[in-house]
Amino acid sequence: MVDTISTTAKKMVINSIKGSLSSNEAVSIVQPFIENYIPKSQKIVFYPYYWVFFHYTVNTIIGKSRIMEASCFVDMINNIASTTDRFEKENIEVVSGNILTASISEEEAFKSARTYLTHASILKRKALMVPKVQVIERELVYKPFWIIKCTNRTRENFNIMVDAVTGKYQTL
């Protein structure tokens, strides 16, 4: 059973990451771990991220590195940056009630992505060098997540959130 969170029927077009998982596939990923619980319903939500794609180089003892790539996501609700894999996008029409509202501006998110890139590149490369950065692309994108409600015989229940792109999951 697939439904939506919102009771409002208002729709809007968003720039979404192409989700490769269907609701059934999302259920099959978590099924082995939910033991005696039964997945009762699935809902889809769209989470706002600011995506920045960088090219950068670093000077080392042996000269300038070749051009490296960094694809960063900034969670626009919690303002937390991370790296991400390449993905495909699509414009889709969704019920507005299924979209989570961003709580930071795009500029704040962009700043977080820059800071994160420097921090991560210094820590991982273990060298105190500021990378020379070029911004190739930046935009607001939404990522689809499946919310699966699981219930057992005693009517205890919990929700799982499954990333519809990567299949990673977390309990709610």
Binding site: V30, F33, I34, I77, N78, L100, M161, K168, T171, L172
Partner: peptide
Amino acid sequence: IPKGMLTSAEFDLSPEAMAV
């Protein structure tokens, strides 16, 4: 929540999970 689910869930999604 079953134990198997807790141990295999991704830490990275905790903030998103809280918001959702």
